[in-house]
């Protein structure tokens, strides 16, 4: 008797296609590394021993035995050395420890801000594409209005009014950047609306929300995922730009952008202060872009040129 082989699911096929791209696969590994670093920051950079034996004769030190706020004016502006792998800043704080904690800001802003605007974009795009008519008109006008605003300037203004905090940055980026996703989802829904399986679901009496979220949305998610990956890179760039201008997180909280911003005064004498956060931002953005491209190629191999 012939065995029936189950055909692989769509996402399994995408994953298989994605794995063929070594650069993109390594990019994913790097993102996993960043996530581990951000989540594990309190154990990676701390001046307290991680573990001591019973007699206290032996203690396991953290990989970076400094906290991000621990200062030592005798050790200010030290270039990278055995104790301070990435040097120290003007207050003698360990740059490596600050960078590790700064990665939390980048990751949090990237993920939460994009999460907010993906949710808004999917909801509005789906409503516009599914219902059409006046709903579509209203959503399309709203998209057009948002697109017209100078985004970075708008974010700066709102941040100045609402006060600089990481939560405000996330919310403001989320509330101002949803237009791309909304247009994407609207377009996908317009295409899907006339497909047989959607019409069949409607004919079977499925509720609107069931048709939208169970039948149509899964088929529109792939391009959203690609766009969201690029969006994380863009959000990290916006956050570091805002911090660079002094509009980001409060100064005592280390973020890559604020470390870079504070380094400006000492650029001529302390190259590592500029190089380290700048390179971190650059590499992180590059990796997210590589993963985004890999994902796009995997989802639609036709686009790969």
């Amino acid at each position: 008797m012939a065995t029936i082989k189950k055909s692989p699911s769509y996402w399994k096929m995408v994953w298989r296609q994605y794995r063929r791209n070594h650069l993109a696969t390594w990019g994913l590994v790097f993102i996993a590394f960043l996530i581990v670093m951000a989540l594990g920051a309190p154990w990676i950079a701390t001046n307290k021993p991680l573990w001591c034996n019973a007699s206290g004769s032996y203690c396991l030190k953290a990989p970076i035995p400094y906290t991000p706020t621990q200062y030592n004016l005798d050790e200010s502006l030290m270039p990278p050395n055995r104790h301070h792998w990435l040097g120290t800043d003007e207050q003698g704080r360990d740059v490596a420890a600050r960078m590790v904690f700064g990665s939390r800001i980048s990751l949090a802003v990237g993920v939460v801000a994009v999460g907010i605007y993906v949710a808004i974009g999917i909801l509005l795009g789906a409503l516009a594409g599914y219902y059409g008519g006046w709903v579509d008109q209203v959503v399309s006008r709203a998209i057009e209005i948002m697109i017209c605003f100078p985004t970075f300037f708008l974010i700066l203004t709102l941040l100045a009014f609402l006060g600089p905090s990481i939560y405000n940055i996330m919310i403001i980026i989320g509330l101002t950047s949803w237009t791309g996703i909304a247009r994407l989802v609207r377009g996908e829904f317009l295409k899907l609306k006339n497909q047989d399986f959607v019409q069949a679901a409607i004919a079977l009496g499925a509720s609107d929300s069931r048709v939208i979220f169970r039948h149509m949305l899964p088929n529109a998610l792939a391009p959203v995922l690609v766009s969201a990956t690029f969006g994380v890179a863009a959000a990290i760039l916006i956050e570091s730009g805002l911090s660079f201008l002094g509009f980001g997180v409060p100064p005592h909280i280390p973020s890559w952008g604020s470390i870079l911003s504070q380094s400006q005064e000492f650029m001529d004498i302390a190259w590592w202060l500029t190089l380290v956060p700048g390179a971190a931002i650059f590499i992180t953005i590059t990796v997210y872009n590589i993963v985004g491209e890999g994902l796009r190629d995997a989802i639609d191999p036709r686009l790969k040129v």
Partner: peptide, 18 residues
């Protein structure tokens, strides 16, 4: 081009100025 595309312009500006 990929590298250029991802370089944060404020970082490049700060480096060029120094």
């Amino acid at each position: 081009l990929f590298i250029l595309y991802s370089l944060p312009s404020f970082w490049v500006a700060a480096l060029l100025m120094t």
